Measured scan of single mutants.
Amino acid sequence: TFVALYDYESRTETDLSFKKGERLQIVNNTEGDWWLAHSLTTGQTGYIPSNYVAP
Rank of each mutant, 00 (worst) to 15 (best):
H38R: 15
S39F: 02
G32F: 09
Y52W: 07
L16V: 06
K19R: 11
Y47Q: 06
D33W: 11
R23P: 11
N51A: 14
W35K: 04
P55N: 09
R23K: 15
H38A: 08
E13I: 09
Y47R: 09
G43Q: 06
T41V: 14
S39A: 04
L16Y: 05
G32I: 11
G21R: 01
S17Q: 07
T1W: 15
T30M: 13
N29W: 14
T42A: 03
F2K: 02
D7F: 03
I48W: 00
S39H: 10
G43C: 07
P55C: 07
K19P: 01
P55T: 09
L36Y: 12
Y47S: 04
T41P: 03
P55D: 08
V27I: 15
A54T: 13
N51M: 10
T45R: 09
E31K: 14
D33N: 13
D7T: 07
S17E: 05
A54V: 14
P55M: 11
R11G: 10
T30P: 09
D33P: 12
L40G: 03
S10H: 06
V3I: 14
N51L: 10
W35S: 03
Y8Q: 01
T1M: 13
K20G: 04
N28C: 09
G32W: 09
A54C: 10
G32K: 14
P55W: 12
T30Q: 12
F2C: 06
T41N: 10
T14R: 14
T45F: 11
T42R: 04
G46Q: 00
L24H: 00
T42M: 03
E22F: 01
T1H: 12
P49A: 04
Q25N: 10
S10E: 05
W35H: 04
G21F: 04
S50W: 09
I48Q: 00
L5N: 03
D15V: 11
G21S: 03
K20H: 05
Q44C: 10
V53I: 09
E13L: 11
D33V: 11
V53C: 03
H38S: 11
G32E: 12
F18N: 00
D7M: 03
V53D: 02
T1I: 15
F18A: 02
E13M: 09
T42F: 02
I26W: 03
T12N: 15
R23M: 15
E9S: 11
T41K: 13
P55S: 10
L36A: 03
Q44G: 08
Y6R: 13
Y47P: 01
V27R: 07
W34C: 09
S10C: 06
S39D: 04
V3P: 01
